[in-house]
Nucleic acid binder design. Sequence first.
DNA 1: GGTGAAACCTCGCTGTC
DNA 2: GACAGCGAGGTTTCACC
Lengths: 154, 154
Amino acid sequence: MTEKLDSIDLTILRILQNDSKKTNKEIATALNLTISPVYERIKRLENDGYIKKYVAVLDKKLLNYPVTAICMVSLRYHNEGFIDKFEQQIKELPEVQECYHMAGKVDFFLKINMKSLDHYHDFVRLKLSNISNIGVLESYFVLKEIKQSTEYVI
Amino acid sequence: MTEKLDSIDLTILRILQNDSKKTNKEIATALNLTISPVYERIKRLENDGYIKKYVAVLDKKLLNYPVTAICMVSLRYHNEGFIDKFEQQIKELPEVQECYHMAGKVDFFLKINMKSLDHYHDFVRLKLSNISNIGVLESYFVLKEIKQSTEYVI
DNA sequence: GGTGAAACCTCGCTGTC
DNA sequence: GACAGCGAGGTTTCACC
């Protein structure tokens, strides 16, 4: 494991989290380096876990997933076992893109993408409701996506 | 612009949204095709906008951004001009990773990553508060990230 | 930790069916 | 729309600094 990242590492990460198709050559040029050190630093950043994965970001609208819901869930019981069980069940639902365990009145935030409100209705009725221990479930619908990114300000 | 995607297109998109480093050769093998059609389909999917970009997903914890907040904002005034102005100002804040205009009582959901609660405090005090027209601002903190993905169930 | 070059492989394209 | 095959260029490695 590495201890610290220097400014070259950070620049590489900044470039890759914006466009992972940049070649080592392009990155090397931007950094006034040769290809080899860039190659080796990227390998190190991958192996040390700084870079988790490389993904293609798709267009939700074109793929016909226009409905996004934010769902706030509160559990009925809060024992460790119940919480772990809930988390496990949520992980297995591919429709749930994001899920966070929260501090405060609401226990979980979920972000869910759907083809239509009917699909969302079915999802809540057939899948979410099958998860026991849900006390309160409130759905909010997205009117417009202002911003969606995976970048960090590093 | 293309009208419809066939099952080969969907398989390619499924593969790439999970791992964009897969080579055309690997994808071709998985699909029992040669490289050329895979190459041409991906080019088409990029040009038609189905694939928006390729990014590296970084590890928040290792980069020392352990604090994630969900922020719910309600505006004071809801004229078109005010809403557009607010959206514009949010877009310019790199700390805000996601922002959605919502239907209902709350106007906007924001997801924000920070190095510490102190940084979050400064962010709210110095940046968010500088945005006029914010009526109500409620912050919820993430205890644990259960799931975070950019994939769609296509 | 960087350089530069060699070996290898994939990409990106063209012609053909 | 898919196949075959090629030259260019990217990836990977290594000896050297």
